[in-house]
Amino acid sequence: MTPLLIAQIALTLIIFVALLSSAAGMVYFERKVAALLQQRLGPYLVGPKGLLQPLADVIKLMFKEELRPRAADPLLFALAPIISATAAFAAFAVVPFGAETTLFGLLDTPLRLQVADVNVAILVIFAIASMSVYGIVLAGWSSNSKYSLLGGLRSSAQMISYELSYGMSLASVLLLANSLSLTDIVNGQSGTWFGFVPRWFVFLQPVGFLIYMTAGIAETNRAPFDFPEAEQELVAGYHTEYSSMSFAMFFLAEYINMVTVSAVATDLFLGGWHGPFLPVSLGWIWFLLKVAAILFFYVWMRWTLPRYRYDQLMAFGWKVLLPVSVLNLIVTAAGVLAFGL
């Protein structure tokens, strides 16, 4: 075992644990921000400032009874949450979150701060996002309940509709960066224009960024696009029949997907780990700050905007977002041809 391999394995474990705890952290963050926006206090009893509330929630979920409807398909019912959670974890594997480091000279060859450096990383993220639909669809179908089925069907229709715009916004960035590797894309955003404007792609791709964020909300089934689990119409949508830890897995997948979408947005549009004041070796602090900012934006959206109607969502996806993203892609391609960016 070379030191590099040991460091790589340790890093993978750290990322895994960090993702798990980020979901717990997001639960607390979401509740606190929601309380802030609604002039409430939020959780404050369990632990200092309610910090142990997520832990209490997890313990509660673990000791709940695991229920399964009699008419449900046992195999798929058990498989669906696993698919959801696995896809959520897998997508983060190709996301880089810091510059190469030798850990203060401990390693001979620098270590990349990501699980796997794939040269088609953008496409891998897109592929895994398209696979995560299955967890939700199968949960909806295998529960053998009308609310679950409707939730699952809505979710698949929604994800198919928004995946196109999502892919187009990714394509416009990779045109600018001239690479499919996320590390290359981040490195293409180092430096500044005129000495003070960072060379982030968000300034070259403002429309692409907006499309990405909108489609990202739809992909992660968050409000105002949370139709798969619209409470008033569908009880809890695809996970109506789930309880205990299998419900927790869907919950986990949703929050990890949010973190992944934010992390990818940071890498694609906000310059990844590049930022002023800090040395490159501490760039991951910038990365975490940017991800936290986008996550705050997501939570803010959820507690500010009411849910749309389902037909409005589909019409918006196909008649507004898709044409705009195609136009954006064409303009970007023309710009790259004309100015050779």
Partner: peptide, 24 residues
């Protein structure tokens, strides 16, 4: 790798979701 990922996106992702949709 490019063909591999496209295989997942197009076949396993897009087309099979539609299949599943219709079957359901």
């Amino acid at each position: 790798p490019f063909v591999a990922v496209i295989q997942i996106i197009v076949y396993a992702g897009a087309i099979m979701v539609l299949f599943l949709f219709v079957v359901m």
